[in-house]
Design a protein around this nucleic acid. Structure first.
Lengths: 201, 201
DNA sequence: ATCTATTTGAAATGAACGTTCCAAATATAT
DNA sequence: ATATATTTGGAACGTTCATTTCAAATAGAT
């Protein structure tokens, strides 16, 4: 009993999905997954409860979409930032500068949504673990490429392999983002970033 | 209408407070503050609801006590571990070895209770912020002393001040603990730790 | 204009939430 | 033994939780 695809498409989605996701992300980012209620999301998105369930499934599904859009948005902005880099080492410096600006801008001390999510849910929700692992792998891969190129240009030392330095940077970035929740002093943060990078030189 | 202190002490607390705190801490550690329900705590402690409220006040008060006992327990164990150190640099190496063992032992990938709490609540609960800041300050002070002594013995380089290296180590440890939630491969973790420490040498 | 799949609003669902209450039990000091 | 301050058990508090339900409104396709 097959039905041909896409005859009749009445009443299409009216709300701006991108905007709704941004509003929802802001709440999740501020309060975390568990402390965010469906009512918070209704208020933030100005959508009806049933519209949210219709469009996104469940609170967890919506959260996952927020994580993905958050990741995507930062990936775009980071790419734009790193385009200005003179070389791979400079790119890593700009990467930490980017995170430093994120911390300084973040007046509510919310930290990184994804790092917070790792703390809150990485030992609980399989779908979240799935996202976090794939995010981690792609991020480490990205860092690995930078380090490799930096080593090829002799801007980064050869004390560790690209993968080892990528792991180190990944760990360091998570620490930097977490430390930035309580530390908002710019020069202290700059010192931390410089010290992290110093290892590579 | 003053009453003299401690006439009549009937029906003293019967439960083992240390044990109860340990059980409660385990639940909070596993699920986080917001995902832990009062029922979870009743089940874990085998105490009655009213006994918990009588003895601890509120869920948040109990959580704060758990944080304090968690911090204290680790401080004791870390002190014991570092007593075996030949010198300050070795002490820092042993510190990371300690955290590495914590990660490896932690089959549920729970991470560090205090770091998780920073992610979950540092932008929400004043009493928690208070604890976290004082914990941070004492921890940084502790690391600062180690670095200073290490520099005096010329085991640690003079590229940064003791306070700067202490900040770096504090940030790095939080990253290490968070990264350890998703990374459970021992040699990868060892590499990260070694790379963090390498900076000091 | 009519049909139709979808969205929308508002109320309702039952379960779970943190917290309170109070009578009964308890253990110490007298 | 008696008195007493505290703990304990268990039910109950009102609220909020995530989710469902369903009739009414809506807008594209015919």
């Amino acid at each position: 009993m097959e039905r041909s695809f896409q005859i009749d498409m009445p009443k299409v989605e009216t709300f701006n999905k991108e905007f709704v996701l941004k509003q929802a992300t802001d709440v999740f980012h501020d309060k975390g997954f568990n402390a965010t209620s469906m009512q918070d999301l209704v208020d933030a998105t100005a959508l009806n409860r049933s519209s949210i369930y219709n469009s996104f499934g469940s609170k967890l599904d919506l959260f996952l979409e927020c994580l993905k859009s958050y990741k995507e948005a930062h990936f775009v902005r980071i790419s734009e930032t790193l385009d200005k880099a003179h070389n791979p080492l400079h790119a890593i410096e700009l990467l930490f500068e980017y995170y430093l600006n994120e911390i300084i801008k973040d007046k509510d001390d919310k930290g990184c949504l994804i790092t917070n999510c790792t703390s809150e849910m990485a030992n609980q929700e399989p779908s979240i673990i799935n996202f976090l692992c794939s995010n981690q792998n792609s991020f480490i891969g990205f860092l690995e490429d930078l380090v490799r190129k930096g080593q090829e240009e002799s801007a980064i030392n050869l004390n560790r392999t690209p993968n080892e330095y990528a792991l180190y940077l990944f760990s360091s970035i998570q620490g930097f983002r977490t430390a930035g929740i309580l530390i908002s002093n710019k020069s202290k943060l700059q010192t931390i970033a410089k010290t992290i990078i110093q290892t590579l030189i």
